Amino acid sequence: MPRVWVIKDKREGTGSQAISLADALGYEYEIKELDSSPFAKLPNFLLGNSLLSISETCKEKFRPPWPEIVISAGRRAALISRYIKIKSQGGAFICQIMHPGYTLNKIYDMIILPNHDARQGKNIVNFTGSPNRITKEILIKARDSWRSKFNSLERPITSLIVGGSNKYMKFGEFEAQDFSKKITRMHGSLKGSIVFTTSRRTGKIGKTISDQLRGEGCKPSLEYFWGAGGDNPYMGILAYSDYLVVSGDSISMLSEACASPGGVYIYVPPNFNSKKHKRYHEELYNLGAAKPLKGVFSNWDPYNFNPTFDMAEEVKKRISFGA
């Protein structure tokens, strides 16, 4: 069995992509979590072939014997996998998820990029969405763990998964009101139960959305606010929901929702200005994996998929043939 290292960024959405691909490969692996130094804020081309971006303690994790396979995700992890490639004298196969930033991209054996990034190259392999952990086995386990909580809810279960403001969009009072009104109209025809959960970026606007839903007579049957403590029902939401309404700012959340059995609606605020994200939304619409949230319910047989296993097969193929 090959020695496999997973270089994990502390940002959960990024690090989980690397772990998801490692799980799909089926080999035993060792997680090397990064602890950044102040130099990590510098662009990769200035950091060069060094470990300046990580702390002195973290540097001790990256010593021989070198692995046969390295899986990294994100710009910060890409710098470390590049270092390993050089120190192993090319012996390590480097699979980089997401664009590595302004660095020597040809040093990576395989770069996994989503189609909506609109980048191509000899060592670039394109897929729809991002690698994620949602499998049939994970969903079965989640159904067992959350049965008592979700079996008591009236069907259909419509779950709202909200991200938050980023450089591409603002999620403020106006967006909260727009979102809540669309959900209320949709729920008027669907009935059933509303489940509401937030993410790390949602912040105080999550409470605003909850209050507005209640004011519209659309009180959530189950709520979870990120960081509030207690068990996070996120996996139960993916396993039990008949419909999932996901804000369009998060590629990771949308990818996980589309790997789940429920029908996915994407909320795109009027001020959303990311061409890359919009390309991904259109790709999902064309596949039949999602529909835009317009406040009108439409029933369809959704296309549920997870690209992670196809990615893993491509890694194995390239290792075997030395691509």
Rank of each mutant, 00 (worst) to 15 (best):
G121I: 08
G74T: 04
F127I: 12
T128A: 14
H99S: 14
S20P: 01
G229T: 06
A118C: 11
Y234E: 02
F179G: 05
W226Q: 00
V125Y: 14
A228N: 13
S37L: 07
A289R: 02
P114S: 14
V70K: 01
A312T: 04
E12K: 13
G90K: 04
R3G: 03
W66L: 07
F39T: 05
P307W: 05
Y303T: 12
S20Q: 07
G172Y: 05
K181T: 07
F196E: 08
L293S: 05
N49P: 14
G288Q: 08
G164K: 06
M98Y: 09
S152Y: 00
P292H: 08
G215L: 06
D231L: 13
L190V: 15
T57L: 08
G90F: 05
L222I: 06
Y267W: 09
Y102K: 09
R155P: 13
A176C: 08
L213G: 13
G263D: 10
S320A: 14
S247I: 07
S36A: 14
C218P: 05
K317C: 11
K170V: 09
R200G: 03
G262V: 10
V125P: 01
I319E: 01
Q177S: 15
S165C: 08
N286T: 10
F305P: 14
S255W: 09
G217T: 05
A323T: 13
M110P: 01
S298M: 03
G206L: 01
E12G: 05
G101D: 04
K122Q: 11
P270H: 13
L213Y: 11
K10T: 15
E56H: 04
N44A: 15
I7L: 03
E56P: 06
Q177A: 15
K122N: 11
G262Y: 02
K204S: 09
R200S: 10
A312I: 05
P65Q: 11
K207A: 13
P43K: 03
K136E: 15
M110Y: 12
W226S: 01
R133L: 09
Y27I: 00
S210E: 13
V296E: 14
L293N: 02
Y102G: 01
D211T: 02
